[in-house]
């Protein structure tokens, strides 16, 4: 019985090891023809060099802003949908999920059309006489924030919605019945109960935002370099394995640290 169960797992496990686990570990510590010492030397340089530091800080900063914006917009959407009895709620939920299916290249391309110098927003500003020449909106931090928000907002909505849907609407009514007004009810019942789910949502968004490639590449270009675009340059243009591995290491540590912290926070929140 036990032997047969192991047979079910082994083929998948072999592919997982060859196609993921072994290469991931080997890459971080021993890229081809490079000693682990070089990777850590390069890592040390990156963390002290002002140019590289700026890239790490930009990645971190934009990631945080995108996370705050996505939760700030996604949680209200999820809250309204989870508490709505309207027939349209299902359609609106589907509209919020749908972008998850659509290629991020297609979605990000939309911002080129909207923000490009001949695009809708600059042309609108021009025709309203608000500016004299088409303003430069592409290749700015704003463009990256907008693009990443578009990409990760659906994730924030879905994760918050799952958390909110588990909060019994009867609890809202009970709190109202006990004399709490709408705002009090929201802050003292709905928010604490859906909190752990929101932490999960925020983690997903942050981890996605600091590692996304398409959006920083198309909307940030070479003026707004981020860790992901750097990693690609090191591995495919300059072929600097030590630098590529060091960048990957920073990215991985960042994502794991935030996931670990949020896991801790969610558990703390669930037990208190």
């Amino acid at each position: 019985m036990r032997g047969r169960t192991a047979l079910l797992v082994l083929p998948g496990l072999a592919v997982l090891l060859i196609g993921f686990l072994i290469p991931s570990v080997a890459m971080l510590f021993a890229p081809p023809g490079v000693s682990p010492v070089e990777v850590f030397d390069r890592l040390g340089q990156m963390l002290t060099d002002p140019y590289d530091q700026a890239i790490v800080m930009r990645t971190l900063g934009l990631g945080l802003i995108v996370t705050v914006v996505c939760i700030g917009l996604g949680y209200p959407i999820a809250y309204l949908l989870s508490r709505s009895t309207s027939r349209w709620a299902g359609v609106l939920l589907a509209l919020a999920i749908f972008p998850l299916l659509l290629s991020s290249v297609v979605r990000t391309f939309g911002w080129l059309v909207v923000l490009g110098s001949q695009g809708a927003v600059p042309q609108l500003l021009l025709s309203l006489g608000l500016t004299d020449s088409a303003p430069q909106l592409l290749y700015t931090p704003l463009a990256i924030v907008l693009g990443l928000t578009q990409i990760f907002l659906p994730l924030a909505v879905v994760a918050s919605y799952s958390a909110l849907a588990q909060v019994d609407a009867g609890l809202d009514e009970a709190a109202r019945g006990l004399g709490a007004n709408r705002i009090r009810t929201f802050w003292s019942v709905v928010v604490p109960l859906s909190g752990p789910g929101v932490v999960v949502a925020a983690t997903l968004v942050f981890a996605g935002a600091v590692t996304a490639y398409t959006t920083p590449y198309l909307l940030g270009g070479s003026r707004q370099r981020m860790l992901s675009t750097q990693l690609y340059t090191y591995s495919s243009t300059t072929i600097d394995w030590a630098a590529a591995s060091a960048t990957a290491l920073i990215m991985t540590v960042l994502v794991f640290a935030v996931s670990g912290l949020s896991g801790l926070a969610a558990r703390r929140g669930a037990t208190s």
Binding site: L13, S235, F256
Partner: peptide, 24 residues
């Protein structure tokens, strides 16, 4: 283990496979 590919950044996985399986 089988869920772990979700938590490692895809770009990092891509780099790992490129370095180790294609080049290496």
């Amino acid at each position: 283990l089988f869920l772990s590919p979700l938590i490692v950044p895809e770009l990092v996985v891509g780099l790992a496979l490129y370095q180790q399986l294609m080049v290496g």
